[in-house]
């Protein structure tokens, strides 16, 4: 059976086409989020269908997730990103007990039971300090490419202490640190450590190993290292971390279609 998952996130839209019989991802794509969410999602969906040489009629089920999920009217139903990330990560790394997901404006810690079911979860409240938006702000402020931040952070011997809980004020704090002559690498490493510390506080006592890291921010290798240090345990990064929400949605679309066909 062929199924699709659409993850309409706060910063980007992700789509996955899955052959649920083989578990093979036939196509995956990402585009920037924007005002016309449904049109953007439709274009992305059609694009990956074209890449896979498929047509919409061949798709047995579509589930939408992410903050824009309710705008995706061509989906059969919606499921929250918490359930979808859990299912997606379970698909890729079934041994996972704790998922750390850091996306554009979100950070989540999800603990899983045997079988990959969600046992508990925690999410950041009304603040973007522990999220991808924080890193984006730093990259912009430092005039750097987002993906080179990690390389720079890796050179740091002594990460700077970033204490602000607010992205806007943290920006001021960072400027202050640079004005004091703190090395750039230490500042960037400090930012990564600040995010990791925020996420660890979210996780509280419920960090069971193995821990897997997913979401767009997991594309930065330095972030996994920062999390390992703060959590004092190994943190694996799933393959294609941007897509676990969409993948989980596609897996769940397959399960739903199978139930409906019974």
């Amino acid at each position: 059976m062929l199924c699709a998952g659409i993850d309409a996130g706060s910063r980007s839209i992700k789509a996955v086409l899955l052959d649920t019989d083989t578990g093979k991802i036939l196509a995956a794509g990402v585009s920037d989020q924007g005002v016309e969410q449904e049109r953007l999602a439709t274009e992305l969906f059609d694009k990956i269908l074209f890449e896979a040489g498929l047509e919409r009629a061949q798709i047995s089920g579509v589930i939408a997730t992410g903050y824009g999920r309710n705008a995706i009217r061509f989906a059969d139903t919606t499921i929250t990103e918490i359930t979808c990330h859990a299912r997606g990560v379970h698909q890729l790394a079934p041994e996972t007990r704790t998922i750390i997901e850091i996306g554009g404006q979100d950070s989540k810690v999800i603990s899983l039971e045997n079988g990959g079911r969600v046992r508990d979860f925690a999410m950041n409240d009304r603040c973007a300090a522990g999220t991808g938006r924080f890193l984006e702000m730093v990259a912009t402020r430092l005039n750097m490419n987002w993906s080179t931040l990690s390389e720079l952070a890796h050179q740091s011997q002594k990460p700077a202490l970033i204490s602000n809980m607010c992205v806007v004020f943290a920006e001021t704090e960072i400027i202050g640190l640079l004005a004091e002559g703190k090395p750039l690498a230490d500042v960037v490493a400090g930012v990564q450590k600040a995010i990791a510390t925020r996420v660890a506080a979210l996780a509280g006592r419920s960090v069971a190993s193995p821990v897997y890291f997913t979401g767009g921010v997991a594309l930065q290798p330095g972030m996994a290292r920062a999390l390992e240090e703060v959590l004092a345990c190994p943190v694996g990064v799933v393959s294609q971390p941007q897509f676990t929400g969409a993948l989980g949605a596609a897996v769940l679309a397959g399960e739903r279609a199978a139930r409906n066909n019974l």
Partner: peptide
């Protein structure tokens, strides 16, 4: 301002 975020958490709880 955080209604969408609250809904996501509540829905996820109910899904669980």
């Amino acid at each position: 301002s955080d209604s969408a975020r609250i809904s996501a958490r509540v829905e996820a709880l109910f899904e669980t």
